[in-house]
């Protein structure tokens, strides 16, 4: 029973929502809107769960003085203080919370993102080797596209940007559409498996 009831809910609601896609009637849409409004109520609870999990993991580390427990302490202090600042003074412009956001959160996020540039270059350095004919095609295409993206490409030859666009729009797009079709089908298959109760790992446990 513990498994049957949730499964029944999934199957019934799942098919109702599949129906919604094909039924534009007011009843169908009103039901959908009403139902969707409930999902908003779930997320706060999930956030509470998340914070609890964070607290438990790092709290345990700190109390047990596990290796690198100092980092956990930093996490916990940051969590408490940011939340405190938000509750205490609000989140408007000019509050400590906003100050933290602008001066801590923003620059740190930007830093992580900018790491991409370095990682891309080292990944490119490793990956683009003319090991085989296919890899050579990849190498040449890669260089053309890279040149095509910057003004110097057009300075070398006006065909470079055009070829780059062609590579992006024709072979690249064709491959992408192929993958997208597969992904679409895969998604349908997984959804169908869930709807029919074939796949129930998400309920906890296997078959």
């Amino acid at each position: 029973m513990k498994r049957q009831i949730p499964l029944m809910i999934v199957i019934i609601l799942g098919f109702l929502f599949v129906g919604h896609t094909f039924i534009p009637h007011k009843y169908s849409i009103d039901f959908y809107d009403w139902f969707i409004s409930w999902t908003k109520a779930i997320s706060p609870f999930a956030v509470a769960l998340g914070v609890m999990s964070l607290w438990m993991v790092h709290g345990t580390k700190v109390t047990r003085k596990a290796p690198n427990w100092q980092y956990s302490l930093v996490t916990l202090v940051a969590l408490v203080f940011t939340a405190f600042a938000g509750f205490m003074w609000g989140t408007n412009e000019g509050t400590p919370f906003m100050w933290l956001f602008k001066n801590v959160q923003l620059p740190m996020s930007a830093t992580m993102f900018s790491l991409l540039a370095f990682y891309i270059s080292s990944a490119a350095y490793k990956a683009f080797r003319a090991r085989s004919p296919e890899a050579t095609v990849l190498l040449v295409a890669g260089i053309i596209v890279m040149l095509g993206q910057v003004p110097i490409g057009a300075m070398i030859s006006k065909w470079i940007p055009e070829t780059a666009t062609w590579i992006l729009n024709v072979p690249n797009l064709a491959a992408k559409r192929g993958i997208m079709t597969g992904v679409g089908l895969g998604m349908t298959a997984v959804s169908l498996k869930i709807l029919l109760g074939i796949e129930r790992t998400y309920l906890g446990g296997g078959d």
Binding site: A117, I120, S121, A124, Y125, K126, F128, R129, A130, L139, G142, I143, M146, L147, Q149, V150, I152
Partner: peptide, 13 residues
């Protein structure tokens, strides 16, 4: 940066 990466790729090859 693109030029640099291209040079790296060429060097690597």
């Amino acid at each position: 940066a693109h030029l640099m990466i291209i040079i790296f790729i060429l060097l690597g090859n």
